[in-house]
Structures are given as C-alpha cells and as structure tokens.
C-alpha cells in the first residue's frame, strides 16, 4: 500500500512540475524578446518616388493600377527576407493582395526561395539579378516594400518585420510621402 501512495504522491509532484514548466513557457511566449526592439520599418529615402516604370513584369503589373498596390521585394540572400518569408507563410490573409518580387541571381534560386517558404499562394515574380527593380526604381536593398498608386511609385519602405511595416503603412496611408517629397 505504502509504495502505491508514495507513487501517487510522486506523480502529483511530477504533474505539478509539468504545470510549472508549461506556465513558464506560456509566460515567456507573452514577453516580447530582445529581438522585438530590432523590428522596424521606415521610409526608404534612397528610392526615387514618383517614377513610373516603362515595363511591368507579370505579377507586378496587377499592382500598377490600384490605388495602393503593394510589392514586397525579397531576396534569397538576405537573412531578414527569410524572416519576412516565414511571417508571410503564416499570414492569415492580411497580406494576400501583395505581390512578391524575388530579387535573385537566377530564376531557379528565386523559385527555390518561393518553394522553401511555401509562398506559392501569393502573386510573385522572380526578378533575375534584381534588374527590373534596380534599373526602373533604383531599389538595391531588400526587404523593401514598394507602394504603387495609379502606375507611379508612391511610397517605399525598408523593413524587417511585417507588423512593423503594417504599422508604418497605416501611419503613412494617405500617400502623402510622394506629395511631401515633390514639394521638397
């Protein structure tokens, strides 16, 4: 009888330990980590706003005539792009209308990036060597978010986190970036 009682007391203690560890894990998941401070999105001052590309790659063209068409420029080579890709893969539909422009050395690497991160459900285009985005818009960095309106580049942001980008997009949502830049 005594070993059975001892066994059950031990089991209760073990269950208490499991509860304790589970609560610690739950609490630590709610505390923003150190990396949160490093999540950012800010207007990209290097990109020339107001330009209207002469040619539009397939996939990107659907953003041309929207009031606010968003293109996210990602690259298989940049670490932040992989983090953004993970966020996109877990997206519930908030970013479903964006187009992904994968700036890669060749199409094969761009496709591998799409497949690796399960981004096939988004509209995407592989920009070989980043030629279109650099020659037409002067974008040489990634991740970059480009906001088009009526065929012109209205806003551009450097970012490394989608929620931070969303906050920045909502802050600058009226398209006043272009107006401000033109006035200056």
């Amino acid at each position: 009888m005594i070993p059975v009682v001892f066994g059950f007391v031990l089991l209760v203690l073990v269950i208490a330990t499991i509860v304790l560890f589970a609560m610690m894990a739950e609490l630590s998941s709610r505390v923003p980590g150190r990396e949160v401070a490093n999540r950012w999105a800010r207007p990209d001052e290097q990109v020339q706003l107001g330009v209207s590309p002469a040619t539009w790659p397939p996939g990107v063209v659907r953003q041309r005539d929207k009031d606010r068409g968003i293109v996210l420029v990602l690259s298989p080579l940049c670490e932040s792009c992989a983090l953004v890709a993970v966020q996109l893969a877990a997206d519930d539909g908030e970013w479903r209308d964006v187009t992904l422009l994968i700036s890669a050395l060749d199409e094969q690497r761009g496709l591998a990036f799409i497949n690796e991160h399960h981004l096939g459900r988004f509209s995407w285009h592989v920009d070989e060597g980043g030629q279109w985005v650099s020659q037409n818009l002067g974008v040489n960095a990634s991740p970059t978010a480009l906001v088009f309106g009526q065929g012109r580049l209205r806003e551009a942001y450097s970012f490394n986190d989608l929620p931070a980008l969303r906050a920045e997009l909502e802050k600058e949502g009226s398209g006043n970036k272009l107006a401000r830049k033109e006035v200056v």
Binding site: V4, G7, I15, F21
Partner: peptide
C-alpha cells in the same frame, strides 16, 4: 502493475518534460 506503472510514468513524464 500499479506500483510499477505509477513510478515509470512519473519518471517518464518528468524526463519528457
């Protein structure tokens, strides 16, 4: 069975935790 299973489960659950 009962004596052994309780001890083994306690040990197994603790190690897995």
């Amino acid at each position: 069975y009962e004596q052994a299973i309780v001890m083994l489960t306690s040990l197994g659950a603790l190690l897995l935790c």
